[in-house]
Simulated scan of single mutants.
Amino acid sequence: MKTLDISNAHSLTYSDLDENLRRGLKSSDPLVFSVLESVSALHQQHVGALEEHRANVGMIQYGSAFPSQLTGKIVSDLQARGRVSPVDFINANAGAPLSICCTRYGFQGPTLVLTMPEATSRPIADSLAQYWLQSGQAEYLFLCRADFEPDRGIEVQTRLVCL
């Protein structure tokens, strides 16, 4: 497995995103913004190869980050009003960042989210990526390391890999 390119994003907000990326994301968790930004940067750099193999482009997100800000809002709304917005509920899903990227760019390959510390999840992600590439289930994979630390915020590093 070889790394074609790497992109980083750090604690982005809705207003940090390019207007084209913002579309439909106003109620998304901040994790979505950083994952989408890093994937979009790589997509722009490698659009020709990725578009040609769109049905076999997959994604794996791993690390300690999950939609915690939006999850907190949902809990607060439930306590205060006894109900929650369906849109908020959908966007609080741990798979929301990858779902949005796949929908936005038409990726149809396998996806997986591992919300656990990088030390545990990266070996699993790398091993599965190698398997998916060697078995032909994917031609390209975005491997998104998404970590959260209260004092550092959300840090996303995305690697675009292939055989």
Rank of each mutant, 00 (worst) to 15 (best):
Gln130Ala: 01
Leu31His: 04
Glu37Tyr: 12
Leu98Asn: 04
Ser135Ile: 00
Ser28Pro: 02
Gln137Ser: 12
Cys162Arg: 04
Leu21Lys: 05
Ser64His: 01
Arg159Asp: 13
Thr3Gly: 03
Asp5Thr: 10
Gln61His: 04
Gln45Leu: 14
Gln69Asp: 04
Pro110Gly: 05
Glu19His: 13
Cys101Tyr: 06
Leu70Asn: 06
Ala55Val: 06
Ser68Thr: 02
His43Tyr: 15
Leu112Ile: 12
Tyr105Cys: 03
Gly63Thr: 01
Leu143Thr: 12
Leu112Asp: 06
Leu133Gln: 12
Ile100Gln: 08
Asp16Met: 07
Asp77Trp: 06
Thr111His: 10
Leu17Thr: 12
Leu17Glu: 14
Ser121Ala: 15
Ala49Gln: 14
Pro67His: 02
Tyr140Gly: 15
Gln130Trp: 02
Asp147Phe: 01
Gly95Lys: 13
Tyr14Ser: 03
Gly72Trp: 02
Pro67Leu: 07
Leu25Gln: 12
Leu143Met: 13
Arg81Tyr: 11
Gly24Leu: 11
Val57His: 00
Ala96Met: 15
Phe107Asp: 01
Gln61Val: 04
Ala9Lys: 08
Ala65Ser: 15
Ser68Leu: 02
Leu128Phe: 01
Cys101Thr: 09
Leu114His: 01
Leu17Asp: 11
Tyr140Trp: 15
Phe107Gln: 08
Glu149Asn: 06
Arg23Met: 15
Trp132Thr: 06
Pro150Met: 08
Asn91Leu: 06
Arg23Ile: 15
Val84Gln: 03
Ile124Cys: 08
Asn8Val: 13
Asp16Gln: 07
Val161Lys: 06
Ala138Gln: 13
Ile74Cys: 02
Ile154Ser: 00
Gln157Met: 13
